[in-house]
Amino acid sequence: MLFRVLPGSPVPLGEQIAACVRGAIADGTAAPGERLPPAREVAESLGVNVHTVLRGYQRLRDESLIELRRGRGAVITAAPGAAGQARLTEAVHGIIGQARELGLTDEEFLALVHHGLASTPVPARPGSGGAAH
């Protein structure tokens, strides 16, 4: 697991740490079941506060990308679709960054997303339309 953070960046350090793990899950360099280094060790390595690292780990747990267990540390989830979920979250962060660059307000951006959702039909899920056959 490779962590790269810029202390001078406007993005909070915890978010940057979460982004490193998310990116590794998205591109497959971090495999399901892989154990993340203990927060204390990451904090020592990066020279940041241990709570900052824990905030990043908690963010990943909220996104269901890792499991935090007492005594076992942080483990990348083995649930199917985690990599896809991570890629989607990355993409969302990407378009939010673009929207901010263009100076869109949050309302304008959300309206854009709503409009996009409304004009895109929900595809039939494979396996859920069994009765129609």
């Binding site: 490779l2 953070v5 280094p37 390595s45 990066l46």
Partner: peptide
């Protein structure tokens, strides 16, 4: 590496 960039790689 950028100046001031903090990095760490760890694996078991």
């Amino acid at each position: 590496l950028a100046e001031g960039e903090a990095v760490a790689w760890s694996r078991t």
